[in-house]
Design a binder for these strands. Structure first.
Lengths: 349, 349
DNA sequence: CTGAAAGCGCTTACAG
DNA sequence: CTGAAAGCGCTTACAG
């Protein structure tokens, strides 16, 4: 009854059949006579037989494991995405190996992206879901793109909310543009004309893309985005706090600000509240992501939900299609949903 | 130059040595003459050789992969713990397979704990770090304990912030009792005598243990814990909100409440604020866990930090010691640290 | 220090 | 439907 002590040979001997037959029962790939199958199953049950997945993988070249690379699982956006990916993968009996790369700004010395890319491939994952880092750079370093291309030839790599122009890598992305447009329309409908942008970093797609959409949206109303109302301080609660502090130090301020994500918006809310402003009375604030806690900030946050389940299902579907050699679309876009809560209200006259 | 196409035999042929010598270079276990080693390394570099980890695992029985089972990675307590575990594991060149079991209350139909326990073992993890679920039950079901014991004989399983009495499974736990005591002393020093407990579930250790410590602490001051000031509604922001609503519906209320964790405390803060109470002026609130966002709630949260890095380092160290057949202490306790912020203040006279 | 050979545990054509 | 045999890619005693 002891652990991992048994092999298909033991089972075969105990059940009075050949190892091949035991294997056939395990895989279910070939017909086996009912009585032999029954005997085999009984023996397997009896000794608690657990087939060695590695021996099988050695033959089949399929590990039923996918790798996930993302910057920081302690960011709710990523953890909600991960959970959705895990559920989608489990439906296909895949497990996930997770590697967090953290911010390159914070740990410039270590290249966790390359480390995990290689480490996961060494562990024979069938494919990789890649988020953050170089695929969020507007202009990624040439050798980082080259690495992605090279490794992408070994195993399929799908970029989630990222991109790598000039490669054949598949992407699955939230419709950030549509989300920001919905946010702007909401603000316009409340009478806001003076709008700022908080958080993000220059050169990062999630910032540049949103900025471009805001600029465009304002132009559509005959308005300009004032450069000093754009405060690209980062992506954290701290960043949002700092961005709001910078904004409040200006002689004039907008009536509404678009946070680059929910954390930034929540940090900004805290700063504005501490400084005595009322949200949304004195200043409307929006987020982006739709993380769980956004519904519980004070005031609760108007934001854009990334539809995690849909995003994850698409990413896993496309990756597994590639694993299985199927055809897949180059780029997939998942719609985002405006969620109106308390942090936005009519513009002051 | 193509991917995964090469074996040690190819390398051996190209370098003019035997496969055994190639293997020796890879493992570094045995001395190889400098010039042969150089030739082998050059060839491996040239063809981008990636040794098949599964073939090796088949021989060595070591996958350099650990499994992590936890309820919900979207809870910051768990994601912060996971990240710390990952860093600790990476130092030893281990990767982590993650399985989320979610709440059994919310998904009673599925037994994700058993699913992942078996799935991870099938994938030949060298050991498992187990959190939540059955090891947080004051009285876990007999068959669930039996499963843990049985699987624990196959591969080492370390319980993190959980326990399983009657087994030899190693535990690594935060000193919750010490943390709650520090919180109580802080509240007593502020003059609070009327104290309630919000959140948690009856029968779950993280609730029962804290409740016992609060009861004891109050007794030490000649005080009683009023049963109606204990509102065990759960562990989420929603739970905290609901608990506070129940509390405010009572004819009398405490001057301070201990949230079972930070989410509950933050949900409670939101409810109290919405109902027009001022925190901490009208009511002091404490949390437990020290999640990142607790510093950014309004008001910021007085809580107990679980010292994630230390907790994780201990858990990984003990698990790997077991993997390598070393002796390990049965139970390890990691100190918690009181963090005083804005949500607590002097009791109203 | 080095090579030939066996073997880790499974699956898969190949015959029958 | 079923068994004997070969092989997946690596490592490890065993000789030398």
């Amino acid at each position: 009854m002891e652990p991992g002590k048994h092999t298909v040979y033991d089972i075969a001997r105990l059940a009075g059949v050949s190892p091949a037959t035991v294997s056939r029962v395990i895989t279910g790939a070939t017909k086996v006579s009912p009585d032999k199958e029954k005997r085999v199953r009984e023996v397997m049950e009896l000794v608690n037989f657990r087939p060695n997945a590695f021996a099988r993988t050695l033959l089949t070249k399929k590990s039923s494991t996918l790798g996930v690379i993302m910057p920081d699982i302690t960011n709710l956006f990523f953890s909600q995405t991960f959970l959705a990916l895990e559920r989608a993968a489990a439906l296909e009996h895949y497990s996930l190996l997770l590697g967090n790369t953290l911010s390159r700004r914070e740990m410039p010395g270590e290249d966790w992206e390359s480390y995990y890319l290689n480490s996961l491939l060494d562990r024979q994952v069938d494919g990789i879901l890649f988020m953050g880092g170089r695929v969020n750079d507007v202009a990624p370093a040439a050798e980082q793109v080259a690495e992605l291309i090279r490794l992408g030839r070994q195993k399929p790599i799908v970029l989630v909310n990222g991109r790598c122009p000039g490669t054949e890598l598949r992407t699955v992305c939230t419709d950030e543009q549509g989300g920001v447009r919905a946010l702007l329309e909401h603000l316009f409908s409340l009478g806001h004309r003076r709008i700022g942008v908080l958080g993000g970093y220059a050169g990062i797609t999630s910032f540049e893309d949103k900025l471009a959409t805001v600029t465009e949206g304002l132009r559509g109303q005959g308005l300009e985005l004032r450069p000093d109302w754009v405060r690209p301080t980062g992506y954290s609660l701290e960043s949002g706090f700092a961005a709001m502090e910078e904004l409040l130090a200006l002689p004039e301020r907008p009536t509404a600000v678009v946070g680059i994500n929910d954390y930034v918006a929540m940090g900004a809310i805290r700063c504005a509240t501490v400084r005595g402003l009322r949200i949304p009375g004195d200043l409307a604030i929006t987020g982006f992501d739709g993380i769980q806690t956004a519904a519980y900030s004070i005031p609760s946050l108007t934001t854009v939900d990334q539809n995690y389940d849909e995003l994850a299902a698409a990413a896993v579907r496309i990756l597994l299609a590639q694993v299985n050699g199927g055809a897949t679309p180059k780029d997939t876009t998942v719609p985002a949903t405006l969620v109106i809560r308390e942090s936005t209200g009519p513009a002051r006259a």
